[in-house]
Design a protein around this nucleic acid. Structure first.
Lengths: 206, 206
DNA sequence: GTCTATATAGGGATAGAC
DNA sequence: GTCTATCCCTATATAGAC
């Protein structure tokens, strides 16, 4: 449970913890939790196994620390994503940019999709990690969409919270189908076509 | 690769294969692929390990056979689901029943959510299984929705295929958030409230 | 045909050297 | 503080008995 090194430490220690987490990311990403071995993580990080255990209590502690770090980073990325939007644009255009930015970021940064896959795949073994994911990532993202939809009358949803969940659900489902489940060839769908249809549906009275 | 017993066999053989698959379902469901052990599967099925290996080539073969069977069953369930709909109802009501039936079936039958979790979680190790899932489950489901939306002008979507993906994406995302990621307490949302918002959004000109 | 018993390998975790 | 070497356990897969 208690996997120490998130406070400030002397530079070398923090660096080595980061090196270990980078190795852990590679191996857990490729193999999943159970099939990953501490030996391969050590090799990927360029340290020995006892060093792993001096920084993290055990395999579970290392995995939890990694997922929490990825969740934290993703939260930061998501919440700071649409800062470059132009508030002068019509709301419909801003929503389009939100969808496009989100899809671009997830497609560009593979580790975000990796996190989704790991969290879903390990949701029975690590239910608290999945709850953290919902609380830190999904909830703020949906609430941001909901607030935006609620403050712009042109969307005219009687229930902006539900509209926001449909909006983010469509984006997440698209990413899972095309990129995680390798459905690109079986169920092809261009990103822009998807976004066009989504915006059209969000605007109630065109 | 070649894990034989899907053809017709003498009754006992087919029965024992089914018993083994039932045990495999329990263990793979609880532990995931890598952490599951053939010993526990044998125990859950009430047979010995060599019997497992006489019916399935190895652990991979058993897992692939299990997922393919679950996929097949789920396809059957999904495609025969809305047979009890009343074609006299207005299209909006039929769509509501489609959403409600799908949500009910997935909530009632836990093995369907289990399949989604396993397929997503093992999508890197077994990419072909995830493609099969998309081809056999997602594609026909989306195409059914799309055909329904296209043939009822009241929905008025310029791109029914995209509308169908948003529709099924919203449902899938709801199930993943509430049931797989245990987000019920963090992001509560009643089923009927979700369905109401979804139908409202699918109908273009209310 | 099915089970007991086992060969063989690999992983988690640690004791002790440097 | 980090590594080498090792302990102990569990897992996959199979040989041989019944």
């Amino acid at each position: 449970m208690n996997s120490a090194p998130l406070q400030h430490l002397s530079g070398d220690k923090a660096d080595k913890a980061k090196v270990i987490l980078d190795g852990a990311l590679q191996v857990f990403t490729a193999d999943g939790y159970a099939a990953a071995s501490m030996g391969r993580i050590a090799a990927a990080a360029g340290v020995s196994k006892p060093t792993l255990y001096s920084y993290f209590q055990d395999k579970e502690g290392l995995f939890v620390a990694l997922i929490q770090q990825l969740t934290h980073n993703l939260r930061y990325t998501i919440l700071h994503l649409p800062l470059d939007l132009d508030p002068q644009e019509p709301p419909e255009q801003i929503l389009r940019q939100m969808a496009t930015s989100t899809l671009n970021e997830f497609s560009r940064n593979a580790s975000l999709l990796t996190l989704m896959r790991l969290v879903i795949g390990e949701s029975e073994r690590f239910p608290d990690l999945s709850r953290t994911f919902v609380r830190e990532i999904i909830k703020p993202m949906v609430e941001r969409f909901s607030a935006f939809l609620a403050t712009h009358a042109c969307f005219g949803h009687s229930d902006p919270m539900v509209a926001a969940r449909i909006f983010s659900g469509a984006i997440a489902h698209y990413l899972i189908m095309q990129h995680i489940l390798h459905g690109d060839d079986i169920l092809p769908l261009e990103r822009d076509r998807m976004v066009n249809g989504l915006i059209e549906m969000m605007v109630s009275y065109p």
